[in-house]
Design a protein around this nucleic acid. Structure first.
Length: 210
DNA sequence: GCGACAG
DNA sequence: ATCTTGTCGC
């Protein structure tokens, strides 16, 4: 499915859209944070889940699950083309509004500065941040003298490595705020928004397999 | 050429 | 991502 041309075209699209990413805080308030995740196994049958969490007590105030179809195969560096649509779809199904979305995957900490979190952010035009367990090959790390470690790529600070996770700007948020949000929602190893969303998506996916 | 490769 | 059993530890 991935021909050289398709790869090049998708990369070009990412390069162009990356210019629309806003790497600074651009919001009124940060009270309700959304977490999204997609669960799947072999085929393209999948379940997307989203949770809304109150930033001040980390309690869930709304949840939603939705059956979705993944139209693209997974390929490192192009995760957005596989999961962004599903995430936007499930987020649009939420009744309440939210201020920011935490996403499993990278934001601007990406070869072309346009990871899944940035793609979703640009699509919904809201603040997003990316949280991932591993770096994409090609990203270089520069250890800082102070906590948190700073990560650099093409001479620009793009993210931070915190408590086993790589945190980066998705859209309309600064790295500083993204880091604060990561810390403020981490009661367990994994931040609540994505932890709860993952639990929801996984349970729903297994249930729907009946 | 070979292996690695966000989820 | 998911498939899977046990195991270490609070």
């Amino acid at each position: 499915m991935y021909s050289y041309d398709l790869n090049t075209n998708l990369a070009n699209i990412q390069n162009m859209l990356a210019e629309h990413v806003i790497k600074k805080d651009d919001f009124k308030e940060l009270k309700i944070i959304a977490g999204v995740d997609v669960s799947f196994s072999q085929d393209n049958q999948a379940v997307a889940a989203a949770v809304l969490i109150d930033l001040y007590n980390l309690e869930i105030i709304e949840t939603i699950i939705q059956e979705v179809e993944l139209l693209f195969p997974y390929k490192s560096g192009f995760l957005g083309f596989r999961e962004a649509n599903a995430m936007v779809s499930v987020l649009n199904g939420l009744k309440r509004d939210y201020d920011v979305v935490m996403i499993n995957g990278h934001g601007v900490l990406h070869p072309r500065g346009f990871g899944l979190a940035s793609q979703v952010g640009v699509m919904i035009d809201k603040p997003t941040l990316g949280v991932a367990k591993r770096l994409i090959v090609g990203i270089h790390i520069v250890e800082g003298n102070h906590f948190p470690e700073l990560i650099i790529f093409t001479n620009e600070i793009l993210g931070a490595y915190l408590n086993g996770f790589y945190v980066s700007i998705g859209h309309k948020i600064s790295l500083k705020t993204a880091i604060e949000l990561f810390n403020d929602t981490s009661i367990f190893k994994t931040p609540e928004p994505i932890r709860q969303a993952h639990i929801l998506a996984t349970q729903a996916f297994k249930k729907i397999l009946d």
